[in-house]
Design a protein around this nucleic acid. Structure first.
Lengths: 237, 237
DNA sequence: CATGAGAGGATTGTTAACAATCTTTGTCAA
DNA sequence: TTGACAAAGATTGTTAACAATCCTCTCATG
């Protein structure tokens, strides 16, 4: 069952598809919607209070961004990135985000740095309080905010998609035991940005992304295990 | 009137939205569909031989990729990138494509190099024969093919979008007088790829992109002129 | 002659019904 | 008990009609 009741239900003023897409993005980043979750049209209609057409169009968008798997006559499912796709997503992030960080460093003004710093405070707070869900969301949002500061909407959209897909990858390929907080690395990047040091920001971002990637257990056995569990639990339900 | 009759009409076997999106991508790259062209649902239905739903979903996808401007109750128009958007697109290309070229250099095998070389031959041929339309299309496709060789579908999709949007930018901001053939630069990049020299490929790609960007007249007066012409021709028709 | 109101037509947005497909359930026989 | 088969139910895909909005042309008026 979809857990899109608390935040999502109350606002009945959803008009365009992008809003719905944004909501589902967030739910996936929070890992409220684990990979493989069925997204039935009827459920989404009820959850968002919109007609079927809106839902179907939103699902199409999500599908075109690799976040949802649209199967013919069988419905929509939260994507389960394959190992190969996971590697491609990380590769794309390493290609793009260091440059985003560089641009952010070149263009950040005092207000931007303050805003980002406040964001990192919240991130640390969530971490300290053990609010894992919030911590994950804020951590992902930091990367998107960097693209905002870089003032490039094209790249911002790309980062948004990649961050979301990374959440799916982490959901599948683990990082279960390990700590997934590189809070300090975010802070380091921000320091470089505050000093308008583009090269440093880019280098730190690349290292940060490599750490995230290493944290994920991409030895395919883990995926096997998860798949097995999924299969078993399907059989049991 | 849409000039989607020759190539597009004959194949009535269009099933999924991505095919339609691909067709419109190509038409835009070829500059058969200039920026600002109205894409009415009825026309597209007839052109592609599909129902209205298919067309509307395709337009939504194109809109989400910045290639089409979807106006409320007013229909869909081929996007007219603003100056700011144009700069962002070029910025994104400079961020991504050098890395694509690097990966392509690292992963290209003999067959890939041969394939790319053949492509460049066709490009030179079209140039020589003065088939401007084909030359433009092939030139754009080269960038996409590099992403193919890099074996990263995520980045391939991004490059596809960026190349298409670049065609729109060129359509608006000119490159009217100047030669837009950097055929030799493509060849240089391929040489680096053939030698598995990732750094060289990346450097050459960045230089190539800067040349493309410089070729475009981003001094906003040009845009003004084009807009004026458009307004006048609208009044006259 | 310019301007604005309004009717008509054309285009887009939405809904609901229908068709097609898949999934589940129940039954029967091996 | 297990497996195959068929019917019922649920879900998705498509179409067509309807509603709402916008555009254009006409015509009256200052």
């Amino acid at each position: 069952m979809l857990k899109i009741s608390d935040d999502e239900m109350r606002s009945e003023d959803l008009v365009d598809e992008e809003s719905i897409v944004g909501r589902i993005y967030e739910a996936i980043i929070d890992q409220r919607l684990p990979p493989g979750t069925k997204l039935s049209e009827a459920t989404l209609c009820e959850a968002f209070g919109v007609g079927r057409m809106r839902v179907r169009r939103s699902l199409l968008l999500l599908s075109s961004r690799g976040v949802v798997d649209l199967q013919n006559n069988r419905g929509a499912y939260v994507a389960q990135p394959t190992l190969s796709q996971a590697l491609q997503v990380f590769e794309a992030r390493r290609a793009i985000e260091p440059n985003v960080a560089r641009l952010a460093a070149e263009r950040a003004n005092g207000a931007d740095v303050l805003e980002l710093s406040g964001h990192l405070d919240m991130e640390a707070d969530a971490q300290k309080k053990g609010d894992r869900r919030l911590a994950i969301r804020l951590s992902g949002q930091f990367h998107v905010k960097l693209a905002e500061v870089a003032k490039n909407e094209v790249m911002e959209r790309m980062v948004k998609e990649l961050v979301t897909r990374t959440s799916l990858i982490i959901g599948i390929y683990g990082a279960a035991g390990t700590k997934n907080c590189h809070d300090d690395e975010h802070r380091e990047i921000l320091t470089a940005i505050g000093g308008n040091d583009g090269d440093a920001a880019a280098t730190l971002m690349e290292r940060h992304l490599r750490h995230i990637e290493r944290q994920v257990d991409l030895s395919s056995d883990r995926k096997q295990r998860v798949d097995l569990i999924k299969i078993l639990s399907r059989g049991a339900s």
